[in-house]
Nucleic acid binder design. Structure first.
Lengths: 212, 212
DNA sequence: CCTTTGAGTGAACAACCGTACACTCAAACC
DNA sequence: GGTTTGAGTGTACGGTTGTTCACTCAAAGG
């Protein structure tokens, strides 16, 4: 089982490497096509392996898609950890959160793109997986919100509704940034301003909301 | 040019009919696949014509997609007309608007599904066409909002931001209704409740917003 | 050291794809 | 009434797809 570490790759390292290569290639292709229109052969061609070798790693393209969902939401969770680190002052928390979002969208562009596209895309299993993950994410946000001083009297349903509103606004923001003309900072800055204003509007609404 | 009206179809009537049949078939197929993964042959097979006949009506599947975008937003504009007809009382306007939305989503289900799926789908031209239409829609809503008494002092930018927030929430609501388990009224009613609450939160936020 | 394992190979398949081209034949036109 | 037009036909083509099957051959294991 255990061998002395040699310079050459161990067998499972090698396998893990091509698996990651497949995921990367698929994500790369899915940036301009949708997952449903992506062919197994296209992926293996880009990886540099023969089509049939694909099955050593995934039973189908659908399974590949589910793995990509996992991968994407792992990086998303990393993002929310960064947000939690921010200072809890109101004005700062808004600008900071949007900033973290924008930053993560930039260097996890492919993941966000994938989620945005496949959320309502052609592969049902992937669709429901994303919906489920997004729901978990929303629930997490709701419990975070519950800890804020102004919102501790809210019902859990109202918190969920608020979290849903925020998540939707943020998802739209992310999708806007992704499909904005690349590296034209004006359009992007406008989107960021909009996002910040919307969050502030939502917060103002929340502050004046009396839970029924 | 002009002939006496006979029982048989005129030539252009016939052409228009198969064109509509193509659009309907494509919309039907796109309900479970995405447009990018839809084949010309699949469509013509469902219509009952030979593949090459497709080109008499559309130069490509992309053009078909753009036609579908037009068709879909035509019905959406019809919806907004219905909303304008509603009474302007605050509580009523929210419940009424959500009601109209839900109703239209139900009997234009395929159109809404198509827009939701292709908004970030695999065909760039269709994507940008939808984005453009949605932007027009948003602008219309902003001018509608400007007529409300509480909002007449707002800057046009703030109105656009507010309209964007509302449209995003409504789009999410529509997508939620579409992908809710069909004809299970509980899930759908929960979505409707959420949508109404979110609109109310946004309105509360707007009411307490001082335009900068 | 010999055996087992399993990631990757390579050829072959049936099915489907988009599109080119020459055609029919009834309605539209002069 | 003869001619033109154009929606729809039928065949055929080269290319891509998913999946099968028997295979190699180096690392892992006893």
């Amino acid at each position: 089982m255990w061998c002395v570490e040699t310079a050459a790759e161990t067998r499972q390292e090698r396998k893990a490497r091509t698996r990651r290569a497949i995921l990367a290639a698929a994500l790369d292709i899915a940036d301009e096509q949708s997952l449903a229109a992506l062919s197994l052969r296209q992926v293996t061609r880009e990886v540099g392996i023969v089509p049939t070798a694909f099955y050593r790693h995934f039973a189908s393209v659908e399974q590949l898609g589910l793995a990509l969902v996992d991968e994407s939401f792992a990086s998303l969770r990393e993002m929310i950890r960064d947000v939690r680190r921010g200072n809890p002052e109101l004005h700062g928390v808004i600008r900071g959160s949007v900033g973290v979002l924008v930053e993560h969208v930039h260097d996890q562009r492919a993941h966000f793109r994938f989620i945005g596209r496949e959320r309502f895309g052609g592969v049902p299993a992937v669709r429901t997986a994303i919906r489920h993950e997004l729901e978990l994410f929303e629930r997490e946000l709701a419990t975070d919100l519950a800890r804020l001083s102004d919102l501790d009297a809210w019902t859990s349903e109202d918190l969920r509704v608020l979290a849903n509103l925020i998540v939707n606004a943020m998802v739209s923001t992310a999708e806007g940034i992704i499909s904005a003309p690349p590296e034209q900072p004006d359009a992007e800055r406008a989107i960021i301003r909009t996002a910040e204003k919307q969050l502030r509007m939502i917060v103002v609404g929340a502050a004046n909301w009396r839970s029924s």
